[in-house]
Design a binder for these strands. Structure first.
Length: 755
RNA sequence: GGGCCUGUAGCUCAGUUGGUUAGAGCAUGCGCUUGAUAAGCGCAGGGUCACUGGUUCGAGCCCAGUCAGGCACACCA
C-alpha cells in the first residue's frame, strides 16, 4: 500500500497526473459512481422530444433551424454541441403543421420518420441538399439559454432514430464527452450528487430540481418558447443502479488522470526491447498502447487504496508529492486504514498539512495496484528483481496487466517491467466453444479436479502438450490419450532402469575417460546421437517456451527410437550376453546416459515421476536441482545416421514380408524367420551379418545382391536355442549343451566355471 | 462494425527458402508375442491441408476474398 502511494508521488512529481471532469455512470440514489457491471437495464418509458435549434451563424443563419431528438430532455441545459454525420445527406426543408411553417435541417433519410412522429408535413422539394460536412462549424441558438451550440461531425451518428442531428452534452455521455473534449469544449455537468440541478444550470427555476422530475418542466419551457417540434413516448431499456434501483444518469465528476501522451513514445520504444511470445504479442500491445486514451486512476469506491488527493480550504484539489510521501510513511506504519480512520484535521496534523486541508474520498484504480507489482514486489524482495524475467498471462491482458505494468514502469524507470512476455489463449471445448468459470459451462474447470482425478503429473503433461499460444483445446478424451503417453514414458524409464540393475557406479564413472564411441556398436552410437538431437531440441524448445515441442520430441523418442527400436533390438544382448560382455556394457552405458538425460529433461513436466526415477540413480539431490543435460557430440554422427536410416528402410521391407508370412501362418515370432534380403550391397556395407540379424530381430538372414530392395521370408530350419530363443545353426552341435546356441553355451560355461 | 490471432488425419502436433506420393505419436482395425505383461512388437486403414479465386513450370506454404472460432475494442444518443 505504502509503495503504491510512493509510486503515485513519483507520478505527481513528474507532472503526469492531472484532474479533469469525466462522465461516469452515477447513481443518484446511492450517490456513487457505478462500474459497468453494477448497472442493470430495465424497461422504461421516456418522453422523447424533437427540438429546433435556430441556426445562428454560418451560411444558413437566420434561414433555418436544425432539428434534434433526445430521450433525455433534462440534459438539454448542458447541450454544447450538435453532431451530424459527415457523409450522410442532409436537407433544408420547409414543413407545415396547422398553419405553422418551419424550415428545418435534418437527415434526408429521416424526413419521413420525422413527419410521422411530429405531424409536420414537408412542403415542396428540399430547398437545399448537402452532406453533413457542410454543416460543420455552424452555430445554433440554444433553445433555453443565451448561448450558441456548435455543429460538429461525429462517427457515432446513426440513422436509426431521431433526425440525424444528435444533441450532445459533453458532461452527460461517453460519446458526448469524447467529442467535446476532442474539440476543446468544457465538460459541463450542472448536476449534484443527488441528481439535482446546480446553480450552474443557468435556469433559476430548475436549480435544486431532481433531473428526472425536471423533464416535464423542460418540455413545458420548450413548448412555451415554441422550439418544441414534437414529442413522443419512447419505450426502451435504460440503465438502473443495481442497489438503489434508481435510474442512473451520466454525470461528469472530477477524475484524476495520467497523461498517457507523455509516456506513449517511451512505452512504444520499451515494447520493442521485450521478447514477446508469441511474436505477434508485440503487434498487439503496440496497437493498444497507440490507441489508449489517458488513464483514469480515480475510482468513486468505498474500498481500495485511497487516492492521495487533498483539498484546500477553498475546495481546490491538491496533488503534492511530498505530502503523499509523508502519507506513505504513515501508512507503512499504521496501515492504509489511517486514511479512513483519521478525521481531516487529525490527518492534517499527522502529516503536517495546513489547517483546513481535507482529504479526498476517491480510491485508486485497481489496475494501479497490480500495475506497480514490479516496484512493490519484484524490486523490493531480495530473491526477486526488477525487471522480471517473464510475465505470463492470457491474451486479454495485453490491454490489462501487461499494459498497466508497462505504463507505470515506463513512468518510473523508462523501460518495461519484464524482459519476456508470454501470453496464452483461452481454454475451449472440443467444438471450439470457450470454457469459462463464469459462463453456463457445467463441466469441471478447476485444475484441482483433474489433479485429484488423474494426478498432477498428467495435468502438467497436458499443459505441456498443447500449443498454448492459440486457443487451448480441452476434453476428457485428451486426458485419456495423455494417460497412454504418460504410461509410455514411465514404462520406458522403467525398462531402462531395469536394464541397469547390474551396472556398477565405477563403470559409469569410467565413461568419461574412455572413448565410448569406439567401444559401442552401431546401434548404441545411433541412439546416443539421437539423444543428442533430442537434448538439443528440448533445450531449444524450453528456451523459447515451446513446451509442446518438448512433449512431442520426448514422446516420439520414447515410443519410436527407444521402445520400438533400441530397447527391442538390444533385448537379446541385454538378456543373453555375458553380463560383462563389451557389447552389453556398452548398451548399459548408453541406457544410463539416456535415463539420466530423460529424468532431467522431463523434470519440469513430469515433476513427480522424474523425481521418482531420478532417485533410483542413487544421487542425493533432487532432480529439480539438476541442470539440463548437455549435448555431447560437437557434431552429429553422420556415419551412423546414414547407416541406420538405410537399415530402417530395409527393416520396413522386411517387416512387410514378415507380416505376410505371419498371415500365412508360416511363422509367428520373427525369430522363427529365415529372411532372404535382396538389396544393393553398399546399403549394408561394413555391417556384420550378426549385427544385421540383431537389428532386424530375425532368426536368420541371407543376403543377395539386387537393385531394388525386397525380402522373402521362409521358416528357418534351425533349432531354437532354449536360452535366447533364437534359431541358430549351432543349436544341437554341442555335446554338453545340445539345446543351446554357441553364444549361450559360452555364457553358461563361463558362469558355471566361475562358481 | 474496424483491429489482432487461429484453421493440416478421430485427438495432439511436425511440415525448412514454394519443389517428388503431406509426416509422427496416440486412437481405430487385423495379427504376433507372453523374459517390459494392468506391458511389448508388427502391419493396415484413415487427408478436398476450412472454402473460393489468383501469382507460379510447381502452392499446405505467397496474395486477395469468403466461412468458422478466439481475444481486446467499438456501437446501443
Amino acid at each position: 500500500m505504502a509503495e503504491i502511494l510512493r509510486v503515485i508521488a513519483t507520478f505527481v512529481e513528474k507532472g503526469l497526473v492531472y484532474v479533469s471532469k469525466k462522465p461516469v455512470f452515477w447513481s443518484s440514489g446511492a450517490q456513487t459512481a457505478l462500474a459497468e457491471a453494477e448497472v442493470e437495464y430495465q424497461e422504461r418509458d421516456d418522453q422523447a422530444v424533437f427540438v429546433k435549434f435556430p441556426i445562428a451563424t454560418g451560411q444558413l443563419a437566420g434561414k433555418a433551424s436544425i432539428a434534434i431528438w433526445t430521450t433525455t430532455p433534462w440534459t438539454l441545459p448542458a447541450n454544447l454541441v450538435i453532431a451530424v454525420d459527415a457523409k450522410e445527406i442532409y436537407v433544408v426543408q420547409e414543413f407545415r403543421r396547422e398553419g405553422v411553417s418551419e424550415v428545418l435541417v435534418l437527415a434526408d433519410k429521416l424526413v419521413d420518420a420525422f413527419s410521422l412522429a411530429t405531424g409536420f408535413q414537408p412542403t415542396g422539394e428540399p430547398m437545399q441538399t448537402f452532406p453533413g460536412t457542410k454543416l460543420e462549424g455552424f452555430g445554433a441558438q440554444h433553445p433555453l439559454l443565451p448561448r450558441t451550440s456548435m455543429i460538429l461531425t461525429a462517427e457515432f451518428v446513426t440513422m436509426d432514430t431521431g433526425t440525424g442531428a444528435v444533441h450532445v452534452a459533453p458532461g452527460h455521455g461517453e460519446d458526448d464527452y469524447a467529442l467535446g473534449s476532442k474539440n476543446g469544449f468544457p465538460i459541463f455537468s450542472p448536476v449534484d450528487d443527488h441528481g439535482r440541478y446546480t446553480e450552474e444550470v443557468g435556469i433559476p427555476e430548475l436549480v435544486g430540481k431532481y433531473v428526472f422530475d425536471a423533464n416535464r418542466d423542460i418540455v413545458r419551457m420548450l413548448r412555451d418558447r415554441e422550439v418544441l417540434l414534437g414529442e413522443q413516448n419512447f419505450h426502451h431499456s435504460y440503465p438502473y443502479c443495481w442497489r438503489s434501483k434508481t435510474p442512473i444518469i451520466f454525470r461528469a465528476v472530477d477524475q484524476f488522470f495520467i497523461r498517457i501522451d507523455d509516456l506513449r513514445a517511451a512505452a512504444l520504444d520499451a515494447i520493442t526491447k521485450v521478447d514477446w511470445i508469441p511474436l505477434w504479442g508485440e503487434n498487439r500491445i503496440a496497437g493498444t498502447v497507440e490507441s489508449r486514451p489517458d488513464w483514469v486512476i480515480s475510482r468513486q469506491r468505498s474500498w481500495g487504496v485511497p487516492l492521495p488527493v487533498f483539498y484546500s480550504g477553498s475546495g481546490e484539489p491538491i496533488l503534492n508529492a511530498n505530502w503523499i510521501r509523508r502519507l506513505a510513511d504513515l501508512v507503512a506504519v499504521r496501515g492504509s486504514n489511517v486514511w479512513f480512520e483519521l478525521s481531516d484535521s487529525e490527518l492534517a496534523r499527522e502529516l503536517g498539512l495546513p489547517p483546513g486541508t481535507t482529504k479526498g474520498s476517491d480510491t485508486i484504480d485497481v489496475w494501479i495496484d497490480s500495475g506497480v507489482s514490479h516496484r512493490a514486489v519484484c524490486a523490493r524482495r531480495p530473491e526477486l528483481h526488477d525487471p522480471a524475467e517473464m510475465y505470463l498471462e492470457a491474451t486479454d491482458q495485453h490491454r490489462g496487466w501487461f499494459q498497466s505494468s508497462l505504463m507505470t514502469s515506463v513512468a518510473l524507470n523508462n523501460r518495461a517491467p519484464y524482459k519476456t512476455c508470454v501470453t496464452h489463449g483461452f481454454v475451449v471445448d472440443l467444438d471450439g466453444k470457450k470454457i469459462s468459470k463464469s459462463s453456463t459451462y457445467d463441466k469441471p474447470v478447476e485444475a484441482s479436479h483433474f489433479v485429484s482425478k488423474h494426478g498432477a503429473d498428467l495435468v502438467r503433461l497436458w499443459a505441456s502438450s498443447i500449443n498454448y499460444t492459440d486457443d487451448v483445446p480441452f476434453s476428457e478424451e485428451m486426458f485419456t490419450r495423455l494417460g497412454d503417453t504418460y504410461r509410455r514414458m514411465r514404462n520406458t524409464l522403467r525398462i531402462l532402469h531395469g536394464n541397469l540393475f547390474d551396472l556398477l557406479v565405477s563403470d559409469v564413472a569410467d565413461v568419461g575417460s574412455r572413448s565410448t564411441t569406439a567401444a559401442t556398436t552401431l546401434i548404441d552410437r545411433w541412439i546416443v546421437d539421437r539423444l543428442d538431437g533430442v537434448i538439443g531440441e528440448c533445450r531449444a524448445a524450453y528456451e523459447s517456451f515451446e513446451f509442446h515441442k518438448v512433449y512431442h520430441t520426448i514422446n516420439q523418442f520414447c515410443a519410436v527410437d527407444l521402445s520400438s527400436l533400441y530397447i527391442d533390438i538390444t533385448k537379446d544382448r541385454m538378456y543373453c550376453d555375458a553380463p560383462n560382455s563389451p557389447r552389453r556394457r556398452a548398451t548399459q552405458l548408453a541406457m544410463h546416459r539416456i535415463y539420466d538425460a530423460l529424468c532431467r529433461l522431463l523434470a519440469p513436466v513430469l515433476a513427480f515421476t522424474s523425481e521418482e526415477a531420478w532417485r533410483y540413480l542413487g544421487g542425493n539431490a533432487s532432480v529439480h536441482l539438476q541442470l539440463f543435460p548437455e549435448v555431447r557430440a560437437s557434431q552429429r554422427d553422420t556415419y551412423v545416421n546414414t547407416a541406420v536410416d538405410r537399415l530402417l528402410k530395409l527393416r520396413a521391407v522386411i517387416g512387410q514380408a514378415l507380416e505376410k508370412a505371419r498371415q500365412q501362418k508360416l511363422i509367428g515370432n520373427s525369430l522363427e524367420a529365415r529372411v532372404i534380403l535382396r538389396c544393393e550391397r553398399k546399403l549394408i556395407d561394413g555391417i556384420s551379418r550378426d549385427e544385421l540379424e540383431e537389428f532386424f530381430i530375425v532368426g536368420e538372414l541371407v543376403l543377395e545382391e539386387a537393385n531394388e530392395p525386397s525380402a522373402v521370408v521362409e521358416r528357418t530350419s534351425f533349432a531354437k536355442c532354449a536360452r535366447c530363443w533364437r534359431h541358430r545353426e549351432t543349436v544341437g552341435k554341442s555335446r554338453t549343451h545340445p539345446d543351446l546356441c554357441d553364444r549361450c553355451e559360452d555364457v553358461v560355461q563361463a558362469r558355471l566355471s566361475s562358481t
